[in-house]
Design a protein around this nucleic acid. Structure first.
Lengths: 348, 348
DNA sequence: AACGTCACAGCAAGCGCTTTCTATGTAGGG
DNA sequence: CCCTACATAGAAAGCGCTTGCTGTGACGTT
């Protein structure tokens, strides 16, 4: 029913072995033979059976990209850059690889299961993006899994995620702490002394690092932090909206709100505006990531730009073995403070 | 080196067949035996070889989701919803399936190649999202490919894409034309008579349909359209920015700008603002899709809401065979006009 | 008491491809 | 001219799993 290698071989009057070699192009095949085979392939409309060849060759051309939330441009941008480098079709940088993105939805189980699924498929490489979950058992399980993958010959790259020592994974880590610190220092420099902070979900490394940076800045300037000034939430707009209302309730005298990321910041802006406060006149707002829409907020968002696309591209190249991994298996990617209209000095 | 089914069998003192049956759980296996096998699996840390089982069973658990631009939330939201239904891990609605999203970047070749790659993997289902490319040869090639996939037992679902007759694909089509018409009618109702239109890329069905809706509205109200009022561009912010500047250059008397989608509309807003025009006082702006950030624009964007997540979920369910396909293989999904602050009556 | 029924478990034949090893034809080299 | 070398092509042994078919006891039935 379906056309197989053997059919092509028969039609081209050669052995299956020869057809395979033509298709994989690593073994010398006479030009005339090759042509005949290609013609047969074309005529029969033959499509290689992926599983069969993966089984026989003990490798596949699948490359997995794990993201926490595919609907979030933060991940979309990275995934896009990674995929562009993997080649997928079109890249034509050697063998065609099927770059696939897997959406974990931030769930530890799904993260693990996807990894198993990829392991099952004998994926050529896996790129994990975004922050990791800090839960100890999960982390241990992940480490084991990553090590296994690496041992099985799958290249593992972390993009925007802290290093996983002893797993053989290569890490491109974002300097969330440094970025957070710089951002808050900017605010302090403007004269703010009462700053609310809307953090992401508790158990994520990204959340913790950004928050640590924020606190480091406060500490460095001798500002004592009021516990009421920090609220945790999700990395989305809604969460920013609600958290801001909560912050305002707890301490209406805040002059600045620092958000875990740009989406959260947008929600914060909405909440402030609805509360009758002006930005930045009454309250300054800052985000993180510098996603495309941040410049369109009114006023435009002060934020920390993360080179998502560049980091993704690099991760992709490393995954493909087209770029050397950084020494020690880790490279720190810095963010850059981008000051725009949403932050200003507090009113006298 | 790697653990195989046979190893597990040996350890559990059963035949490989039994292990396979325990793992696939379709054939009766005594509880005690099953337990022993599971224990062995666990102890040996066995991971099924995907390619091997796909080869033997002649099907795989891969489900492909094709998107035009993964960095665009429009696709991210749909992909997310689809994936959630596919199960991926976590869904647990039967067999675990590896839902993978493939980024075509809007390129016809990549679209086709991804389809071949998925065909090669003997994917269980494929969901194509977003508008199609109208180029006739490409379309024909796609139709052939889709038909082949369907014939090979892969379920093919189109989400937000026009029907592909005779390919066996099930379509959930967005009513872009109707939405576009309603939107422009809203503007006309407000009193606008000179409306600029920033369209998407020429060759996409989405572009054409939205534009047709727009023109239908104009025609219905006897407004003759000036060819200078339409500019084509990409579906991104940048494009909206540039196109708006161009529109303004061509006819500074426009009182409204209708954009191909929300991102474009945001760019349009930026351009207008920088040109010293106020929204909606001087110029009204409207988008399409109602992506999450649209409500945060200032003023908030009037747009047409497309139930992206719902449509995606439905497509996912159909792909999994968990929901019946619509009669005739096609269902039209309507958008809903959402009026917000960016549109108002033109100044006297 | 003999036999048909079940409920399980095992055998073995592939699934379609890759790849090692071997065979063959041709071209120089001595 | 014969022999070694090289360039190709073929034969065949798997890769690890699924599954139709074939046992084999333990029961329940006449």
């Amino acid at each position: 029913m379906t056309v197989t290698l053997a059919d092509v071989a028969a039609r081209a009057q050669v052995s299956p072995a020869t057809v395979s070699r033509v298709l994989n192009g690593n073994y010398p095949v006479a030009a005339s033979t090759r042509e005949r085979v290609l013609k047969a392939v074309d005529e029969l409309d033959y499509v290689l059976n992926g599983p069969a060849s993966a089984l026989a060759a003990a490798t596949s051309d699948l490359v997995g990209i794990l993201v926490n939330d595919i609907a979030d441009p933060f991940f979309g941008i990275m995934a896009s850059a990674i995929q562009a480098e993997i080649g997928g079709p079109g890249g034509r940088a050697g063998g065609e690889r099927l770059a696939v993105v897997c959406n974990t939805g931030g769930s530890p189980e799904r993260e693990l299961t996807y990894l198993t699924l990829l392991q099952r498929q004998r994926a050529a490489a896996v790129v994990l993006t975004g922050g990791a979950i800090e839960d100890a058992p999960h982390r241990a399980a992940m480490d084991v899994k990553l090590r296994k993958l690496a041992e099985a010959g799958t290249r593992v790259v972390l993009c925007g995620r802290p290093q996983a020592p002893e797993t053989g994974a290569i890490a491109l880590t974002f300097d969330n702490r440094g970025g957070g610190q710089e951002l808050t220092e900017h605010l302090i420099g403007l004269g703010h002394r009462r700053l609310g902070y809307i953090a992401g979900p508790q158990e994520r490394t990204t959340t913790r690092h950004r928050l640590e940076g924020h606190r480091a800045a406060l500490a460095a300037h001798g500002i004592e932090e009021d516990p009421r000034w920090t609220v945790h939430g999700r990395y989305d707009r809604r969460s920013g909206y609600e958290a801001t209302l909560e912050l305002l309730r707890r301490d209406p005298s805040l002059t600045a709100v620092v958000a875990a990321n740009d989406s959260v910041a947008l929600g914060a802006c909405a909440a402030l505006r609805e509360s009758g406060l002006r930005i930045p006149d009454d309250v300054s707002v800052a985000g993180f990531d510098d996603l495309p829409f941040s410049i369109d907020a009114v006023p435009a968002l002060t934020t920390v730009r993360l080179p998502l696309a560049e980091a993704g591209a690099r991760a992709g190249r490393i995954a493909m073995g087209r770029e050397e991994a950084p020494a020690d298996g880790i490279a720190v990617v810095r963010g850059e403070l981008v000051v725009r209209g949403s932050t200003a000095a507090p009113r006298g």
